[in-house]
């Protein structure tokens, strides 16, 4: 097991997060085959039904599609990926802004900090 799940959030959501992240970063491109449910279950040490649920949810979001005979493939279009990336990015930024405000940071200060940080990374 090379991934630490937090047990207080549904595991299937965390598995979705892992695979959606891979798709967003382009590690799994359109047309790539997804690993088998059982294989994923074993790698992460989780219940196969949980993995199945995560994948079914990704199918529902039309990020992947299960072909009866040949397995499950990534089918997310570039448009969809862009939209999803934007959505998740917005979500992360909203959270981030909330925290900066709580620290008493202004918008300009924050942006300066980000610039500096981005270059250092």
């Amino acid at each position: 097991m090379n991934h630490a799940f937090s047990y207080d959030v549904p595991i299937y959501l965390q598995i979705m997060e892992i695979f959606i992240g891979q798709i967003l970063r382009g590690e799994r491109a359109r047309g790539d085959q997804m690993p088998a449910v059982r294989e994923v279950a074993m790698i992460y040490g989780v219940n196969p039904n949980t993995v199945q649920r995560a994948f079914a949810e990704m199918d529902r979001l039309e990020l992947t599609r299960s072909e009866r005979t040949s397995g499950r493939f990534v089918v997310a279009s570039d448009e969809m990926i862009r939209a999803l990336r934007a959505e998740q990015s917005k979500e992360a930024i909203r959270e981030f802004i909330g925290r900066q405000k709580a620290l008493g940071m202004s918008c300009d200060e924050t942006i300066d900090m980000i610039r500096k940080g981005w270059i250092d990374e």
Binding site: S6, Y7, D8, V9, P10, I11, Y12, T50
Partner: peptide, 14 residues
Amino acid sequence: VEDLRAEEGRSVDE
């Protein structure tokens, strides 16, 4: 268990 985690926001153990 997944319902429990979603609805209670806790691990089963906790």
